[in-house]
C-alpha cells in the first residue's frame, strides 16, 4: 500500500501539492486525473522519491521513501516521468536491460535476459532492438522507456502519462499490459492519465486532483459521473454507457 500523509510541495509562493493525504491500495490500477497544473506529476515524483517534499511523508509497504536506501526501493518501485530527454546513445536492448540493474547490477542472468526479450517483444520493438534511441520516433522511444521500467519487475509501477506520443493501437496495448500486470501478477499500477476514457476503461480506482489537492477518490464507475468530472475539469462532460464502459463525451 502507498500511504501519502500530509504531503506539501511549494515552489516559491506557489503551492503545487497542498497537504495531500491519500492511500493507494495494493494491487489494481489507479489513475490520477486532473487539469494541467493540478499537481499530479509533482505528487507522483514525490511518491517515487524523485522530488523531496517540503513536509509530510510517503510510505510504500511501510518503507519511508525519503529514508529507505534508493537501491532497495528500486527493487520495489519503478517510475517513469512524463518528459525524458536522454542524450546517451544506447540501443533499445541496452536501455531495456538497464531495467534489470537494481536486481543484477549489470551482470545479467538468463532470467534477466528472458525478461528483457519478453518486454521488447511485447512492445513490438524486436526489429528496433539494435537501433540507438536517437534513431527512433517519439512513440517508439516512449515504448522503449516503458519496456525498461516494466523490466524492473517491481511490485509498484508509477507512470506519468505513459500514453505520450503513442498511437491508438499502442495506447490500448499499453493499457492492456498494465491491466494484465495488475490482474495476473498482483502489481500495483499508478498512472497519471489525461484521457479520462482510458482511465475509465482500464482502472479500478480514480483519484481526482485540482489545485494541488485531492478532491475526489473512488471506484471508477462512481468517479465517471458528470458531476464529479465537472468539478475536476470545469467542463460539462456527458457520460454514456457504451459496450460496458463509462465513456465521457466532451469533444464538441
Amino acid at each position: 500500500m502507498i500511504q501519502i500523509d500530509h504531503v506539501t510541495k511549494r515552489y516559491g509562493e506557489t503551492t503545487v501539492v497542498d497537504d495531500v493525504c491519500l492511500s493507494i491500495p495494493k494491487g489494481g490500477v489507479t489513475s490520477i486525473i486532473g487539469a494541467n497544473g493540478a499537481g499530479k506529476s509533482t505528487l507522483l515524483s514525490i511518491v517515487s522519491r524523485l522530488l523531496p517534499s517540503d513536509s509530510g511523508s510517503v510510505t510504500v509497504d511501510g518503507l519511508d521513501v525519503a529514508t529507505t536506501p534508493s537501491g532497495k526501493l528500486a527493487r520495489r518501485l519503478a517510475v517513469l516521468r512524463q518528459e525524458n530527454h536522454m542524450s546517451v546513445r544506447l540501443t533499445v536492448r541496452e536501455l531495456v536491460a538497464f531495467g534489470r540493474f537494481p536486481h543484477s547490477g549489470g551482470r545479467l542472468t538468463s532470467h534477466d535476459l528472458d525478461l528483457v526479450d519478453e518486454a521488447i517483444g511485447y512492445f513490438e520493438l524486436t526489429d528496433l532492438a539494435d537501433r540507438h534511441l536517437d534513431q527512433l520516433s517519439g512513440g517508439q522511444r516512449q515504448r522503449a522507456y516503458v519496456a525498461m521500467v516494466l523490466c524492473q519487475d517491481t511490485d509498484y509501477v508509477l507512470l506519468d502519462e505513459p500514453l505520450n506520443n503513442l498511437d491508438m493501437r499502442h495506447s490500448v496495448q499499453m493499457m492492456r499490459r498494465l491491466r494484465r500486470m495488475a490482474d495476473e501478477f498482483a502489481k500495483t499500477v499508478v498512472l497519471v492519465v489525461h484521457d479520462i476514457n482510458f482511465a475509465s476503461c482500464h482502472s479500478d480506482t480514480i483519484v481526482a486532483m485540482k489545485n494541488g489537492k485531492v478532491i475526489a477518490q473512488g471506484d471508477t464507475a462512481a468517479m465517471m459521473s458528470p458531476d464529479v468530472l465537472r468539478e475536476v475539469y470545469d467542463l460539462d462532460i456527458d457520460v454514456h454507457d457504451l459496450s460496458g464502459h463509462r465513456i465521457g463525451v466532451y469533444f464538441s
Binding site: S48, R49, L50, P69, S70, G71, K72, L73, A74, R75, A78, V79, L80, R81, N84, H85, M86, S87, V88, L90, F98, G99, F101, P102, V149, Q152
Partner: peptide, 14 residues
Amino acid sequence: TVAGMGRSFSINLG
C-alpha cells in the same frame, strides 16, 4: 552510463 541517462532515471534504478 546510468548517470548519463540523467537524475530521474538514475534514482529510479537505485
